[in-house]
Nucleic acid binder design. Structure first.
Lengths: 202, 202
DNA sequence: GTCTATAGTGCGATAGAC
DNA sequence: GTCTATCGCACTATAGAC
């Protein structure tokens, strides 16, 4: 009841709140129905009741609208690294970050992630943006490891390996057949990485 | 002498040969002097004595002109994997590919690589393209590992790790102070990777 | 080789919030 | 008054269609 009154009051102001969220939702829908290339910025803006110019004030480009959630995930990873026990090794620090990030991918989110990934898989420009975000993540993780006393080049190698584990995990998690939790898959994947490097070539 | 005659004859044909090479050289120069964003496709074409339309017939987009050498490097990596001895482990297959790729980076090439990397480092769009090329490389390497009997997800983890080692090596190799050969750095980096994962978290 | 859609930018004006 | 979100319009360059 009170909510309805508030809604009516809100409608009287010059613009509806939550422009970013509306643009994001509209973009997802249109990218699914018409494809990324078949959707113009004007289409998205119109679907959200805004103008093209406003779209570009919220998002630097047409791709970014699919990726602005990444920052939260990155922060979780970094917090996870920071939360690791003293004297943890580089790989243990990374493992701690990975556990933290797994909380961002509960089972309920799997369908959404699948839809989003389908859009990205169909367009090289979107793949490029995703890779850039992962590279930024790896760089940030490497910095966090250095802050915990891990020297280069170990910090960068460990950070990149962590992002690799995350990426492979994500791929398995959204695979059609998969039913296991993100965290379960990720733990196994980290074990696989360790096992893979155990066969030492000198 | 003969060369001069040939040059004169060549000038009589409808177009100079080596259009791609001229466009590539012109693009490098202009990207350095005016920056990537400050250079238009028309600028590059004009500097190479060609039209904008011709530029886009040779390169899919303005970025690609800096990246079309990658295919040769990728093939070298794959050949290196294929050349590894029977019964090689995943990491040994990758190490074999890495050795092969190191031949693409003799000391004489360091200055060129530095200039090119400076351009890329200044522009996110170029970083995206570079990351895509590396991702394509990793995918191809993973396929080569599977062809040698390495199962998933080990193949992908090993391939990604290999590309990581390559990337970190490249960064050290072009660093101002570095004087060591690409191959030397890369061997150490692979050892570091193995050492880093040896501290096993269960 | 020409034509065109559209991504993305720059700038000024407007409408409200504070 | 300042600050922020929006619109509207003109503009360039990319990239693809014809």
């Amino acid at each position: 009841m009170a909510a309805a009154v508030i809604t009516r009051l809100v409608r009287m102001v010059r613009w509806e709140p939550g422009a970013s969220a509306r643009l994001r939702a509209a973009a997802m829908d249109l990218y699914v129905s018409r494809g990324f290339d078949g959707t113009t910025a004007a289409d998205i803006a119109q679907a959200a009741g805004l103008t093209e110019r406003t779209f570009f004030r919220h998002f630097a480009d047409k791709r970014e609208v699919l990726f602005d959630g990444q920052n939260l995930m990155q922060q979780a990873f970094l917090d996870g690294v920071a939360a690791a026990p003293r004297e943890a090794s580089a790989l243990e620090l990374v493992a701690s970050g990975l556990s933290a990030v797994a909380t961002f991918f509960p089972d309920e989110r799997r369908d959404y992630s699948r839809r989003r990934q389908t859009i990205i898989a169909e367009n090289p420009a979107l793949q490029e943006r995703e890779l850039l975000k992962l590279a930024v993540l790896a760089t940030a993780v490497a910095a966090a490891l250095r802050a915990r006393g891990i020297p280069e080049p170990t910090a960068t190698l460990a950070a990149q390996s962590g992002v690799t584990v995350f990426g492979v995990t994500f791929g398995v998690w959204i695979a059609e057949s998969s039913e296991r939790s993100f965290d379960d898959i990720q733990r196994d994947m980290l074990q696989e990485l360790v096992a893979m490097t155990a066969g030492v070539p000198s």
